[in-house]
Each structure stands twice: as C-alpha cells, then as structure tokens.
C-alpha cells in the first residue's frame, strides 16, 4: 500500500484511492454543508416537511438576524478575539524566553523544567479548575479578561515544545559571532535569533491562538456572566434551552466557523508545521 509520492503510477490503480478520498472529504465536509443549508431554512421548514431537504424552499436570513441582534453572538466573537489575542501575545513572549534558554543554555534543572512542561501538558484540565475558581473569586477576577492567565496551563507547554524544536534548528555560529561582537543575550535573542526564528514563532502563535480560541472549561466556570462568554461557551448556551432552535444554532455555528475557516485557509502550512514539530519529526 505504501508508495512513494509522485510516482507515475498506472492511472487505473488510482481509482479506489480517489473513491476513498472522495468519501473521506464528503464525510468531513458534510456536517458544515448541512449546517449552512439549515441556517437559511425557515423554522417551519427545519421542523417540518423540508427538514431533510437539501434546498431551502424560502431562503431566509431570520436566524442570522436573531443570533446577531438578540443573542449577541458577535459579542462572543469579540470576547474570543480579545482573549485569544492577549493569550497569544504574552504566551509567545514567555515561551520564547523559556525555549531559548532550554535550547541554548546549559543549566541545572533543565531536564526538570522540560519534564515539568511535558507533565503540565498531560494534566487533566479539570484539576486546576477548582483552586483557580476559588483564587479568582477571592481576587475579584471572576468575570473579567484576567481569565487569560490560567489559559497558560493549556497553551504554554505546547508553545515551549514547538519553539524548542525550532530554536534547535537554528545554527549556533551566528549567535556566537554576535556574542564576540559584544551583544548581550537579550540583544542576541532579539537581533539575531528572533528574526531567524520568526517563522517558527509565527507557527507557534497560530497554534496558541487556536487552542485559546477553543478553550471551554475555564471560561464556563469562571466567566459565568454572558458578557464575558467566548464563542464555545456562548454556543453551548444555545444548547441548554428547553426548546432548541436549530435554525439559530445553525446560523450561530456558521458565523463562528468563519474565523476558524479563515485561519485554516491562510495558515494551513504553519498549522501543519506546528502540529508536526510538536512531536512527530524525529
């Protein structure tokens, strides 16, 4: 089965693969397609005769109007943008320093630090929720954007891990000559290493952004007020109504999928590189 890429294979043996590939794509894409169709159907159609029809009989934007105007879904998108962006910026800063130290300096406890980072990435997230909830209540930080700080427990390990891999690929010689010219470690980091590591740093930023964008448990427990809800939490509240309005659910899903779709479209190369340098490349 395994075969070298781009091999000029006999065309007919490709058909089964093409068929499988098509089936795979259909399965992956179908839920999105169906949600998109549903978002334009009227409630009468969704809960009636046309529930399983592929074409909306009377296309309508009522669900979009409802989730945007009444349910404030854009507020959730805005919150998610703020929270994810802030997390990305400070996590990248902290992780860059740490990863640079791990990659370049020899110091006692380095393997302990690496082991710690790995261990934190394996924690069940639920383990930090109780104490952090109490801490935030005591500090009066519940229902605020301070929530980005505990986001570190899910984003920091991944960020350090990817960045260390990238720093290790940058040759030492450049830094050594910079050092001989009298540059301080901070100068070396910002003038020499950072520009060279920029692609890796950017990759890491994208991954961190996505992880922060998808965070759920911390926000639902600590930021219980709807004005601080992020996209995943706001979406989950559409589910917990007595009667689920699938039209609104569909419209909201379409709206919140757009940012994810854009990120994937523009940065798929970085995402794949980030995911794979997180552990697969030997």
């Amino acid at each position: 089965m395994a075969q070298q890429p781009n091999h000029p294979d006999a065309p007919k043996s490709k058909w089964p693969f093409l068929l499988l590939l098509t089936f795979y794509l259909v399965v992956v894409v179908f839920p999105f397609f169906w949600i998109l169709v549903t978002s334009f159907k009227s409630s009468g159609e969704i809960f009636g005769d046309n529930a399983f029809g592929v074409v909306p009989e009377n296309p309508t934007l009522e669900h979009y109007a409802s989730v945007i105007l009444d349910k404030g879904i854009l507020r959730a998108v805005w919150n998610s943008l703020i929270v994810s962006f802030t997390t990305t910026v400070y996590i990248i800063l902290v992780a860059t320093f740490a990863a640079y130290a791990i990659s370049r300096f020899e110091f006692k406890g380095k393997s302990v630090l690496l082991g710690l980072v790995l261990a934190v990435s394996m924690f069940p997230q639920m383990i930090v929720i109780g104490p952090i909830y109490n801490l935030f209540i005591d500090l009066g930080w519940a229902n605020s954007y301070w929530i980005v700080l505990p986001y570190s427990s899910i984003t920091l390990p991944m960020a350090v891990w990817i960045l260390v891999t990238h720093f290790n690929q940058i040759p030492l010689a450049l830094e050594e000559s910079a050092r001989m010219d009298g540059a301080t470690p901070f100068q070396t980091l910002f003038r020499i290493v950072f520009p060279l590591a920029a692609p890796g740093v950017f990759t890491t930023a994208i991954i961190v952004f996505i992880i922060a964008w998808n965070e759920f448990v911390l926000t639902i427990t600590i930021n219980s007020q709807s004005e601080y809800h992020t996209v995943p939490v706001a979406i989950s509240f559409l589910r917990t109504q007595f009667e689920i309005l699938w039209g609104e659910v569909a419209a909201a899903t379409v709206i919140v999928t757009i940012p994810t779709l854009l990120i994937v479209l523009f940065f798929q190369r970085q995402i794949v590189s980030g995911l794979t340098s997180g552990g697969v490349k030997e």
Binding site: L21, L25, V28, V29, P31, F32, W34, I35, T38, I210, W213, N214, F216, V231, P232, V233, I235, S236, L238, R239, I244, W246, V249, A250, T253, V256, T257, T260, L261, I263, V264, L265, Q268, I271, V272
Partner: peptide
C-alpha cells in the same frame, strides 16, 4: 484542498462541533 478540509474539524472549537452534531 484536502489538507484544508482536514484541518477545519480539528481547528473548530469542540463545543461548536458538538452542537453541530447534536443537530445532526
């Protein structure tokens, strides 16, 4: 195209994906 299509389910927030499936 295949790669993009593959990445979207992963990049989509789990809660959003779950709600989508609860409709399906």
């Amino acid at each position: 195209f295949i790669r993009t299509a593959s990445l979207i389910p992963w990049a989509l927030p789990t809660a959003v994906g779950a709600l989508m499936w609860s409709y399906l």
